[in-house]
């Protein structure tokens, strides 16, 4: 009788740890492919930039960055980002709010419009600004007559940067705000809170992470924008040259070390942004988890 109950020997342990996951060789291949891509497209260029910048030593690199033209370019880039990013954060919040919380005619069109800077080449955008605000332009001739120059000056650079980086904040916020809906704001309203108070105490805390990501992305792009800024700036050395423009100019003049030093600094600014984001995520991990759980 007992013999009849003997089950066949269990099959050999399957290749993968769980029946729903891929076999080991597949996972290894995928990981290897991803790693190879990372090395080729991210790490190798970064390492190359920094080694090239430091080929003639720290002293040469420092001398490049201390030159008046370089200082002016760095200052211009930072000022541009410092003005364009906060303004775009405000516009981004406003447009995301309008899209997520209101129903109105032409909403789909507005969403398309927000994406426009992504689909239009930055060079074209820059040219549009030149046409509009240049000395031959409709608005430009009037402004110049009143002593305001936009093109080939800082205002034009800021405008072009704002155009190119406009979608970042709005695109981060719209899905988050749609998902969260209006209920919490309505609740605050029934509790007697004013509009501004609701925004400050309910809306803003609920979108703060998406807003932070949007602002960081926006900032990275604002500092790195080349095409649109190249057209409107006029590339006046020491006056309207931003860091990306200066890198190109140095490179074209065969000043490789100087070009790469500047590039390394720009890359470092990007890395600082990323580090900041990771640090915030780590620092506020608990809060983040609490606000995402339902």
């Amino acid at each position: 009788m007992a013999d009849a109950l003997v089950l066949p020997a269990p099959p050999a342990a399957p290749a993968s740890a769980s029946p729903v996951s891929e076999p080991a060789w597949m996972r290894c291949t995928l990981i290897a492919v991803v790693l190879a891509m990372l090395v080729i497209f991210l790490f190798a260029p970064l390492v190359a930039v920094f080694t090239e910048a430091l080929r003639e030593g720290w002293r040469a690199a420092a001398a490049t960055l201390a030159s008046p033209d370089a200082v002016s370019a760095i200052r211009l880039t930072l000022i541009t980002a410092a003005i364009a990013v906060p303004l775009n954060a405000v516009f981004g919040i406003a447009s995301a709010w309008a899209i997520a919380k209101f129903d109105f005619r032409g909403k789909a069109f507005l969403i398309t419009l927000i994406d426009l800077p992504f689909s239009v080449s930055p060079v074209v955008a820059g040219l549009c600004f030149v046409l509009l605000f240049g000395s031959q332009g409709l608005v430009g001739s009037w402004l110049i007559a009143h002593g305001v120059s936009i093109v080939f000056a800082m205002p034009g650079i800021i405008l072009a940067t704002m155009f190119v980086t406009f979608p970042f904040v709005a695109r981060e916020l719209v899905p988050v705000m749609i998902e969260q809906g209006r209920a919490e704001e309505e609740a605050a309203l029934t509790l007697g809170a004013s509009g501004w108070r609701i925004f400050r105490t309910v809306t803003l805390p609920n979108i703060r992470w998406a807003l932070l990501y949007g602002v960081l992305l926006c900032n990275a792009r604002a500092m790195g924008e080349f095409g649109a800024v190249a057209v409107v700036s006029g590339k006046i050395r020491g006056e309207t040259t931003t860091m990306p423009l200066m890198i190109e100019m140095l490179y074209n003049e065969y000043l490789t070390v100087a070009a790469f030093t500047m590039a390394a600094l720009l890359a470092a600014l990007g890395l600082v942004t990323l580090t900041l984001k990771s640090f915030m995520e780590w620092r506020y991990a608990d809060l983040l988890a609490a606000s995402h759980r339902r």
Binding site: A183, E184, E186, A187, A188, L189, T190, G192, A193, S194, T201, V202, P205, N206, L287, A290, S291, R294
Partner: peptide
């Protein structure tokens, strides 16, 4: 705000943060 009606929402709409 002027009505001062206590309102309980369908999914409560508690402030999650």
């Amino acid at each position: 705000q002027e009505r001062r009606a206590g309102f309980v929402f369908q999914h409560y709409a508690l402030f999650r943060h």
